[in-house]
């Protein structure tokens, strides 16, 4: 029943996120002919302006187009936002809502409470991550541009594993800050700032400064346009991202176990 409680607590966030992820995936697949047409029109109107390299490639290479918009930029940003929002919860939030007394009167250990909440959150963000992996190949049939299912699954897996760090950020923020809405504002603020700083590097492919490279989880989540071989995966970045996520989960658990409610 704890799983059921965790699901009830997050179901609205999850369902809204699922709708947005579906809409975003569908927009870039079904909107592909329209977007390419717009680019062509723009090129005809401005024949002397040089196209950006990624636009040229995305025009000719449909999987690259999908990777760029879905797994590299917009859907990734949407997924990160959803992951961080789903991460909010736990006993600190219950403390702010006044229900912590009831929860802690049940014969359950705090470790189990944190564990179940975290597992339900991870399942939800994983489901959100795999929606595009399934939806994109199906919808691509309607525009006569095949998209390999295995590519979608590989990119989704990388996005989910690399992005666990954002979910753990949501968990730790809502553990540290005993308030209903402050962790949400801070979390959304951090994500917005992070992607604002990254925007020029993500769009134009400009080389990132070292400090940004060190924290750029979005690059790890996106990987390379084609994840066709073992070496194409960013293993070091993925490992570091997972390690940070694990440390944050453990920290949240430790704080929850020690805290007075």
């Amino acid at each position: 029943m704890l799983w059921y409680k965790a699901w009830l607590e997050t179901r609205f966030r999850f369902l809204i996120a699922a709708i947005l992820v579906c809409a975003c995936s569908a927009f870039f697949v079904l909107g592909n002919p329209f977007i390419l047409g717009t680019w062509r029109e723009w090129q005809q109107l401005h024949p002397h302006e040089q196209e950006r390299a990624w636009i040229l490639r995305a025009t000719a290479d449909y999987p690259y187009f999908i990777w760029h918009f879905v797994f590299r930029i917009l859907l990734q940003q949407l997924w990160v936002l959803c992951a961080i929002l789903i991460g909010f919860g736990g006993l600190s939030r219950e403390s702010a809502q006044g229900t912590v007394g009831f929860t802690l009167s049940l014969p359950i250990g705090r470790r189990r409470l944190v564990g179940v909440n975290t597992c339900v959150g991870i399942i939800e963000i994983a489901l959100l991550g795999f929606i595009p992996a399934l939806l994109i190949p199906i919808l691509s049939v309607f525009i006569d541009k095949p998209y390999p299912v295995i590519q979608g699954i590989s990119h989704s897996l990388l996005m989910v594993l690399g992005g666990l760090v954002f979910f753990s950020l949501g968990v730790i923020l809502s553990t540290l800050i005993q308030s209903e809405h402050t962790p949400t504002l801070i979390g959304v603020g951090i994500v917005a700032l992070f992607y604002f700083i990254l925007t020029p590097y993500a769009d134009d492919g400009a080389p990132e400064p070292l400090w940004l490279k060190m924290i750029d989880a979005s690059r790890v989540m996106a990987g390379t346009p084609y994840l066709s071989s073992f070496s194409a995966y960013p293993w070091v970045g993925l490992g570091l991202s997972l390690l940070v996520a694990l440390v944050l989960f453990c920290l949240a658990l430790r704080i929850t176990e020690k805290r007075d409610y």
Partner: peptide, 20 residues
């Protein structure tokens, strides 16, 4: 945990899960 298996508690503010 074993204490709470055998103990019932009603909190001062009686807040319960609003979403249930």
């Amino acid at each position: 945990i074993n204490i709470r298996k055998r103990t019932a508690f009603v909190n001062e503010d009686k807040r319960l899960y609003d979403y249930m």
